[in-house]
């Protein structure tokens, strides 16, 4: 069983080595002339104003939340899809109900304006 994932492990190791190796290599051979201005965060050439760790639009949070909720529904859809033919009519009706309920939430979210991005 573990064998099936061994190649993946090997691939991961190779990818890591490649990534790390190139970073290390470039930092070895690249030039180093840091200056304060160079190390300042980019802000169109002006002096940086305030911290970057500020609050950002709630919209991003909304998207993340909606993603979680709708993505979780996929958790149910995937196994269902695989077994869908064997489940027959019952499975279809059941998933239909599931999706209808999901749509209620979806319509609600839509009408609430959570999907708008002005």
């Amino acid at each position: 069983m573990l064998g099936a994932y061994l190649p993946i492990l090997v691939l991961v190791v190779i990818a890591c080595l490649f990534g790390l190796g190139s970073v290390v290599f470039s930092s070895l051979i690249g030039q180093k002339k840091p200056s304060q201005v160079k190390l300042a965060p980019y802000e169109c050439g002006c002096e940086p104003v305030g911290s970057a760790r500020e609050r950002f639009s709630i919209k991003f949070y909304m998207v993340a939340m909606l993603f979680i909720l709708f993505d979780i529904e996929a958790v149910f859809l995937y196994p269902w899809a695989v077994l869908f033919k064997r489940l027959g009519m019952f499975g279809l009706v059941e998933m239909g109900l599931f999706i209808v309920i999901l749509f209620v939430g979806y319509i609600y979210v839509w009408k609430k304006g959570a999907l708008e991005w002005e």
Partner: peptide, 10 residues
Amino acid sequence: AMVLLLVNVF
């Protein structure tokens, strides 16, 4: 509850 939820937004 679902109907009310929709009624509320509509």
